[in-house]
Design a protein around this nucleic acid. Structure first.
Lengths: 213, 213
DNA sequence: TTTTAATGTTACCATCGTAAACATGGAAGC
DNA sequence: GCTTCCATGTTTACGATGGTAACATTAAAA
């Protein structure tokens, strides 16, 4: 039953797709641990490769992290567009939908979210793609708001500033929850996420409202 | 002219106050660089001491950082109380004053602010003092809001939730600005901080308002 | 004056990112 | 079909950095 073609017992010299394997392992570790905490050596070991092999595919660890962040923003952008669509279908408020999507994304993917917004790896200057995608995500929110203003759903004001305000709210909330900065001193429960989302959502809605409610 | 008592040319064996010297140098570096970026060795060198001497005063680098963060929260708490007082004097809105104080603090002390909210060093569990002070700062905001509600200045709602909403807004804004996450894609100017503060302040005020404006 | 405990120093170690030089083997050209 | 070459891995080594352990020194207590 032995085929003549001798096959290396395991792990061909050429991995085949080491680049993606490394990215996948990194993301897995980050998600598992909820933090951006791994080193290239363990990453390489998981991929069945020597640790320096990574440098054939990434200039540095930061670059690898930047790619993960990039994928994260792409995912978030997709979720945003999905939310906008869903809102259109169901008649709910698109900005609120997008806001909730943002916070849920952060809470459900703490590691990934941290990789996206962590100070450490974010000289956006060094990673223009990453920066562009982050901007696109923000632009998506701005677009949604512009439509809303045009449709008379929101008050007349700079869409960009409104977007910044809304983004700040959900981003801040996400960050506070993830880093457990203050939330703990709150209500009895360990934090009812959906209830909080509803309250903050209403809070933000007031900032968008045309007039008295 | 030589006194019999031989004095070490410089740097007595006992530093005298190495602990505070290290803290001061660390804070200085952090403020100078705008990031939590220094290592114990350079710190020790600046203090004129071997690097391992630091371990007589701090269990670890994290503990040193935690102390810096603690001092930061104490400072912020003071600024909060000052803002509340100022608001009472001048008749302006205390929550807005505190909110602006928060953002200005972050923008003017990026390094320090990062040290306070950076994921890396924040297992609050390990630093109960730090946690307590952070909570006290939050509590200060809650107290201000409770007064406001009682005085009929704000709408009736959970003060804690309102506080969380407001905190999330200013915290998010601070973080976005510091990390340059989205703000750049905004207006022409490199970001007029005070104008932005006014807008976001108004945005938040709407979330607090009793009714139509 | 003696003892002692606090505070520094000297040697090390382990981890980790990274660079340089070498190795291998699949595909591209002859 | 053979040779060449380049992409991809490997080996080896280095430097930076946080940290530990054992020893040294001196101010202050006994």
């Amino acid at each position: 039953m032995s085929k003549p073609r001798k096959r290396k017992p395991r792990g061909a010299y050429r991995h085949g797709d080491l680049r993606n394997a490394l990215l996948a392992e990194a993301l897995r570790l980050i998600q598992e641990r909820g933090q951006v905490d791994f080193n290239l050596r363990e990453l390489a070991k998981l991929a069945g490769v020597t640790h320096t092999a990574a440098y054939r595919h990434f200039r540095s660890k930061r670059e690898l992290l930047a790619e993960i962040a990039l994928a994260g923003y792409q995912r978030l952008l997709f979720l945003f567009q999905e939310a906008a669509f869903r809102a259109k279908e169901s008649g709910t408020d698109p900005v609120l939908e997008q806001g909730k999507v943002y916070v849920r994304f952060a809470v459900e993917n703490p590691g990934r979210f941290r990789a996206m917004v962590d100070p450490g790896l974010h000289p956006f200057i060094d990673f223009p793609d990453l920066y562009a995608t982050a901007k696109a995500t923000f632009a998506s929110l701005v677009a949604t708001i512009k439509e809303g203003i045009a449709a008379g759903r929101y008050r007349m004001a700079s869409a960009t500033r409104l977007a910044l305000s809304a983004w700040a709210s959900v981003h801040g909330l996400s960050h506070l929850i993830l880093e457990q900065l203050v939330v703990d001193s709150m209500d009895p429960t360990p934090l009812d996420l959906e209830a909080t989302l509803d309250f903050v959502g209403d809070f933000v809605a007031r900032g968008f409202a045309r007039e008295a409610r």
